[in-house]
């Protein structure tokens, strides 16, 4: 597992502040998996990753999450960026 990707829009705690609740994120298309402090909602997760809500799918198991949906400690969430690049 690596640390969260850096982004000019990235907000939230630094990657090493993992004393509290943690989630695991699989970021696609890079297929990078990393742990990060729990984001309370899908919207907050996207913000911390520097992504706009209309540019990525947030997936819990086989379920799509709208930005207002809560995220819980120890969950594994897939974030799939969908802006095509050729």
């Amino acid at each position: 597992m690596s640390t969260p990707p850096s982004s000019s829009r990235t907000h939230g705690p630094a990657p090493d502040e993992t004393a509290g609740p943690v989630i695991t994120v699989l970021l696609q298309p890079e297929n990078k998996e990393f742990a990060m402090p729990r984001a309370k909602t899908a919207r907050q997760l996207l913000e911390r990753l520097g992504l706009r809500p209309g540019t990525a799918l947030v997936i819990r198991e086989e379920t799509l999450l709208t930005p207002d949906r809560r995220i819980y400690a120890d969950e594994r969430i897939t974030v799939r960026v969908v802006t095509s690049r050729g």
Partner: peptide, 13 residues
């Protein structure tokens, strides 16, 4: 969903 390796920096994006 892997991007085209040649498209990096394309103005379209």
């Amino acid at each position: 969903f892997a991007p085209c390796p040649y498209s990096r920096g394309a103005s379209f994006t």
